[in-house]
Each structure stands twice: as C-alpha cells, then as structure tokens.
C-alpha cells in the first residue's frame, strides 16, 4: 500500500515538474496564435478562440526572417561539416600516428580549452576586421571550424578501435587515408553523429559572435535577427512569440528525432571532463 502511494506521489511530482518546464513553450505557442487584444487579456487564456496562424506570416513580413533562416542554415551546416572534417583528420593524427611534439601539442590544445571564448572575441574581432571579413559568411564560420572538444572526443573514440584492425588493414595494403575513411569513420558513427548534433545546436543558437561581426541585415543569423526584431515589433507579443517559435522549432524537432544521440553525447563528454 505505501509503495503504491509512493509511486503515485512520484509520478505526481514529476508531472508537475515536467509541466513547469514546459510552461514557457506552451505560453509561447499560445501567444503566437492570439490576436493583439487577446495577448493583453487578464486572466490570460491558453487557447485563443481562433488560432491565428497569420501571425507567422505577419512576422515574416515585418522582418526578413527567411533570409535569417537561410543564413542560419548555411552557417550551421558549413560550420558543422567543416569542423567534422578537420576534427576527423586531427583526431586520427593524435590517435594513430606518431609525430614529434605529439605530447606537447596535445597538452597545449587541451590547455586552450580552458580559456573562455569570451576573452578571445576582442582580438578575433580585430583579426576579422583586418581581413575585411566583417559582414560575411566567412566571419561567421571560419573561427569556429576547429573544436578541441570534437577533436578530443573523436580521438578517444578512434583509440577504442582495436590496434589489430589497423595492422590488418596495413598488411592488406590499405593506406592510412583509406583506413581512416573506410574503417575508422564508419565504426565511429554514433560518436560522430553525437558530435555533429551538439555542434548543430551550438551553431544554431550562437549569439554573441554573430551579433558582433554582423551589422548588415543580410548576414544576420536567426538569434541576432530575432533580437533586432524585438525593437521593431515593440509590444506586439503575438508576433514576437511567433518569431521565437520559428527560431526554436527546428532544434526541438532535431532533438525529438535524434534524442538518444544527444543524450549519449552529453553523457560521454560530460563524464570525461
């Protein structure tokens, strides 16, 4: 009997907690479908009388969200794929090859992970300006092409593949290059997927750097565009919430679809740290 009551209580508490976590999302969705007067109604209503999907098109008309969206997609995909390519090569060198200065370089790059990125933003901005890269895709992408986190995670994964496989491939006459792409990379699939998703989420949501290196509307990414939109939309909260939904939704779908990889990625990387 007490066990049953306990389980019931457990579910009850977890349900309240989960609902609390979801309130901001529900409030956002609900507001995004209201009319302007409905947003100001007290007590607030959760389900508006008529679902006004027009708010989404209205928000799109007020600011170039389609352009922001395309920018975000381009920047996110290029960053993620470029970073993956560079990380695979570097991780392979650290995991399988022998070279002078290996230990030193490893410790050096591991050490740079401790430096807060915020500190580097100033001089990176100076560099980007000197290269005339302000307001360009290059400025949004290139500085993020190296992720030491990705490199070290992949190195770990590559090292977990048995040495015998490497020597067998060598005996069969496979080059390092072929061994890497035809054996190591396919075997590390789940690690790679996890790294990519975490990077996609990070790039998509990144704010401070895009804010600093873009002042031209044409190169704004979604979060920066959304922030700029708040001053235009003023108190039209139904439009603001429609725009917020538009920024948030792609990552929510990605998360719902690939949840197990994200969780696995976080568990692994977190525990190593």
């Amino acid at each position: 009997m007490t066990k049953k009551v306990g389980t019931f209580l457990l579910y009850f508490l977890l349900l309240i907690g989960a609902f609390t976590m979801l309130i901001p999302f529900l409030w956002m969705l609900s507001t995004s479908l209201k009319t302007a007067p409905e947003t100001l109604q007290v007590p607030p209503i959760w389900v508006p009388k008529i679902l006004r999907f027009e708010n989404y098109s209205a928000a799109f008309k007020t600011a170039p969200f389609m352009r922001y969206f395309i920018n975000s997609v381009v920047v996110t995909l290029t960053t993620t794929l470029g970073q993956l390519f560079i990380s695979i090569l570097a991780a392979f060198a650290f995991a399988r090859l022998r070279f002078w200065g290996q230990r030193f370089l490893f410790v050096l790059f591991l050490g740079t992970m401790m430096v807060p990125g915020e500190m580097l933003i100033i001089s990176n901005f100076v560099t980007v300006s000197a290269l005339h890269m302000v307001n360009s895709y290059a400025a949004l992408i290139v500085p993020w092409l190296v992720s030491f986190f990705a490199i070290f995670t992949l190195k770990q994964t590559f090292q977990s593949v048995p040495d015998e496989l490497y020597y067998a491939a060598k005996v069969d006459g496979a080059s390092d290059w072929r061994f890497l792409w035809q054996i190591l990379v396919p075997l590390s699939r789940s690690s790679i997927v996890a790294i990519c998703i975490l990077q996609v989420i990070g790039s998509w949501n990144s704010f401070m750097w895009p804010l600093i290196v873009t002042n031209d509307e044409r190169f704004r990414t979604l979060p920066v565009g959304l922030q700029a939109f708040t001053s235009d939309a003023g108190t039209d909260y139904q439009l603001l919430m429609a725009a917020s939904t538009f920024v948030i939704i792609p990552m929510v779908f990605l998360y719902l679809g690939l949840q197990k990889y994200i969780i696995a990625g976080i568990s692994k990387s977190g525990l190593k740290g």
Partner: peptide, 14 residues
C-alpha cells in the same frame, strides 16, 4: 536545446 535568445524573449513576456 533551445536558443537562449529566443527563449529569453519568451521569459521576458512571462
């Protein structure tokens, strides 16, 4: 997984 900027906007409305 949600954009901090977007969800902070929601919170400012809350």
């Amino acid at each position: 997984v949600t954009s901090t900027v977007a969800i902070a906007l929601v919170w400012s409305w809350l």
